[in-house]
C-alpha cells in the first residue's frame, strides 16, 4: 500500500496551535520572560538568570506558604472524600427524593467563589454573624480575625461546605451505575453492609473517586478567592496560601521577577503532584 505524503496537511493543526498559543503558551512565556530578568522601571530589563528562582527556593516565606497549602489540601481531602462518599451512599436511588437531593447538593457549587467567601465572612463575624454570635453565646471563644486556629477552622469548614457536593455528585454517579445484579449476588453470598461497600461499591467508584481527588487537590492547592475574602491571609500570615502570597508579591510589592519565578515553580509543583496522584491511583487498582 502506498501512502500519500503531503506536508501541507500540517496546516490542519494550525487553528488548534494558534488557540493554545494565545491561551496558554504565550502568557506562560511572558511569565518565563519576567522570571529570568530584573528591572528598575522605565521598561529597562537586565538578564538575571536563575537568581529569582534561587531567591524563591531559599526563602522561608515560600516554604511556609507551601507548607500551609499542603496541610490545607491534606485536611480538606481527608474530610471531603470520606464525607462525600458517606453522603452519596445515603442518598436515595429512586423516587421523589432524588431530584431534591441532587439540587440541594448542586447549590453550593453554583455560588460564585467570592460570594461563598462573603457568606462565611459575614456568617462567622462575632458582632453580626449567625455562627459567630451563636458560638459566642454558647461561651466559645471564637474569633477568626485574631485567632489563627479559628481562622483555619473557618476556612476549612467553608471549603468543606463549598466542595463536598462535588465529591458527593461524582460518587453518586459512580454508585448508580452499578448494576442491580451485583447487590443481589452480594445478598445471596451473605455479604455484610461493609463487605458490599468494600468489594462492590468502592471498586466501582474507583474511577470517579480518582477524578474527585484530582479535582479537589488541584483546586485546593490553588485556592485563593475564599480565604482571601474571609481572612485576607491573616491573622498575620497564618492563612496566606501560595496563591495569596503570589498576588501579594506581584501586585502588592510589585516584585515581578520573583513573582514570575514563583509562578513557574508553583505551576511545576501542581503538575508534578497531579501526575503522581494520577499514576498512583490508576496503578493501585490494576493488574499485578
Amino acid at each position: 500500500m502506498t501512502k500519500t505524503w503531503n506536508n501541507r496537511a500540517w496546516f490542519m493543526v494550525l487553528p488548534v496551535l494558534l488557540l493554545v498559543a494565545f491561551s496558554a503558551v504565550i502568557p506562560l512565556m511572558t511569565v518565563v520572560n519576567y522570571s529570568v530578568q530584573d528591572t528598575f522601571g522605565n521598561n529597562v530589563f537586565f538578564w538575571a538568570g536563575t537568581e529569582w528562582y534561587q531567591d524563591v527556593l531559599s526563602s522561608d516565606r515560600f516554604w511556609n506558604a507551601m507548607g500551609r497549602n499542603l496541610a490545607f489540601s491534606a485536611i480538606i481531602l481527608a474530610i471531603e472524600i470520606p464525607l462525600g462518599i458517606f453522603i452519596a451512599l445515603n442518598m436515595p436511588r429512586k423516587g421523589w427524593g432524588v431530584p431534591i437531593c441532587l439540587v440541594l447538593m448542586a447549590l453550593p457549587l453554583l455560588i460564585p467563589w467570592n460570594v461563598v467567601g462573603t457568606i462565611w465572612q459575614v456568617f462567622g463575624r462575632i458582632d453580626i454573624g449567625l455562627l459567630g454570635r451563636t458560638l459566642a453565646a454558647m461561651g466559645i471563644d471564637y474569633n477568626y480575625v485574631n485567632d489563627p486556629f479559628d481562622a483555619w477552622v473557618t476556612v476549612i469548614v467553608m471549603d468543606v461546605w463549598h466542595w463536598t457536593s462535588l465529591v458527593v455528585l461524582l460518587s453518586y454517579a459512580g454508585l448508580v451505575s452499578i448494576p442491580d445484579a451485583y447487590y443481589q449476588a452480594a445478598r445471596i453470598d451473605g455479604a455484610s453492609r461493609w463487605a458490599i461497600f468494600r468489594y462492590i461499591q468502592l471498586p466501582k467508584m474507583n474511577r470517579v473517586l480518582l477524578i474527585a481527588v484530582l479535582l479537589r487537590f488541584m483546586d485546593s492547592f490553588m485556592i485563593y478567592t475564599e480565604p482571601f475574602v474571609v481572612t485576607g491571609g491573616g491573622p498575620g500570615n497564618t492563612t496566606t496560601f501560595l496563591s495569596i502570597d503570589l498576588v501579594k508579591l506581584a501586585i502588592g510589592e510589585f516584585n515581578l521577577g520573583e513573582a514570575a519565578a514563583m509562578s513557574i515553580i508553583y505551576f511545576l509543583i501542581i503538575l508534578l503532584l497531579s501526575w503522581v496522584f494520577y499514576t498512583v491511583m490508576t496503578n493501585a487498582g490494576s493488574e499485578k
Binding site: P179, A181, Y182, Q184, A185, I188, Y199, I200, P203, K204, G285
Partner: peptide
C-alpha cells in the same frame, strides 16, 4: 440459602 447465577457474570473485581 440459595445460590443464583445471573445473566451477566457478577464477580468481585478486586479479589
Amino acid at each position: 440459602n440459595i445460590a443464583q447465577v445471573f445473566q451477566f457474570p457478577v464477580i468481585y473485581d478486586t479479589m
